[in-house]
Design a protein around this nucleic acid. Structure first.
Length: 322
DNA sequence: TCCGGAATAT
DNA sequence: AATATTCCGG
């Protein structure tokens, strides 16, 4: 029992103008126990599996604060589970009984947490919004790329719309799929012309607000910037070396044309002025294209740009300094 | 007022 | 680190 929900309703959230069209849900999650830890397969998974959203117990995952409040006793996650279980009765409103397959949706379930071992404290985020039909294909495509992912999130409660008012916003879990759509949209628009609203449109995910996109976009740009910067550095670095050797490229261009960097951007020579519908600059970073072990959406700061041409990338240095 | 983007906050 | 929120011009 745990009646949770004292919630003082701050009532400040209320989506201002975000078209709230969050309906649709779809909880088909496929438990991927392929190579996961047993822990993953713990039960809360199942528990959550069916219940996705519903604002009931608005706070289950709130945050530290509230959690702390009643968690004082001790069981943290335990309570969570229980709570969810009880949630079953949740269904009361009209809810949407959508079909349950594809449809963009926001809800989802699947929790996994990294409980592995000893690390659970008060998780908070979660919630993952899933999207549409693409999944299948992506799955295929992403194969090893995504594989293990897609189920990492500890869901808790969702906010729904329907009339509610005191709903909180849950963190959106940018799953590889979502991210992929995001990147796709951005590319289509052109990196510099991409703005949240447009991206949102292109993505077609109904849930997700402009803000979500904006936030992600910010991060995206930031990462990209770093990446480019690094590569540029590396490039210039290699440049010098080349010069030394008497090599080539007289131009003093710092990093305009870099064979290596190019792929990173996806489109060096023509960026903005063209985005045919079905054209697609293969991979940028978060792309499925680059499977391998690069499945980490956001490339960590690992410089990868072989300094000298002629050699196969492979190792690289990590310090580009001078 | 709405939007986009950077700066902050959580 | 990843998201969300807030602040600040257009």
């Amino acid at each position: 029992m745990l009646a949770v929900s004292p919630l003082p309703n701050t009532s400040k959230d209320e989506n201002q103008g975000e078209m709230a069209s969050t309906f649709a849900i779809d909880t088909h999650e496929f438990p991927d126990f392929s190579d996961t830890n047993l822990l993953d397969s713990i039960d809360f998974d199942d528990l959550f599996a069916g219940i996705n959203d519903s604002d009931v117990l608005p706070d289950l995952e709130m945050d530290p604060e509230i959690l702390a409040e009643f968690s004082a006793g001790g069981g943290d996650q335990e309570s969570e589970m229980k709570a969810s279980a009880s949630v079953e009765k949740v269904e009361e409103n009209n809810f949407k009984k959508e079909e349950e397959d594809k449809v963009s949706s926001c809800g989802s379930g699947a929790a996994s947490g990294s409980a592995s071992g000893s690390n659970f404290s008060k998780e908070e985020e979660i919630v993952s919004k899933r999207e549409e039909p693409v999944s299948a294909s992506l799955k295929t495509l992403a194969k090893d790329g995504d594989k293990g992912r897609s189920k990492s999130s500890t869901q808790t409660k969702n906010n729904n719309n329907n009339n509610n008012q005191g709903k909180r916003k849950m963190k959106v879990d940018w799953t590889p799929e979502l991210h992929r759509r995001f990147v796709q949209a951005v590319e289509q628009l052109g990196v510099d012309k991409a703005v949240p609203s447009r991206i949102l449109e292109l993505m077609g995910i109904d849930c997700l607000t402009r803000h979500n996109i904006a936030s992600h976009l910010q991060k995206y740009r930031s990462h990209r910037k770093h990446l480019l910067a690094r590569e540029a550095e590396a490039a210039s670095w290699s440049h010098r070396r080349q010069m030394y050797g008497g090599a080539t490229v007289p131009s003093g261009g710092k990093r305009d044309m870099n064979p290596w960097i190019a792929p990173t951007m996806g489109f060096p020579p023509m960026t903005p002025p063209m985005h045919p519908p079905h054209f697609r600059p293969l991979h940028v970073w978060g792309h499925p294209s680059m499977d391998q072990s690069l499945m980490h959406m956001w490339p960590k700061p690992v410089a990868h740009s072989p300094p000298l041409r002629g050699l196969n990338h492979g190792l690289l240095t990590g310090t580009t300094n001078r």
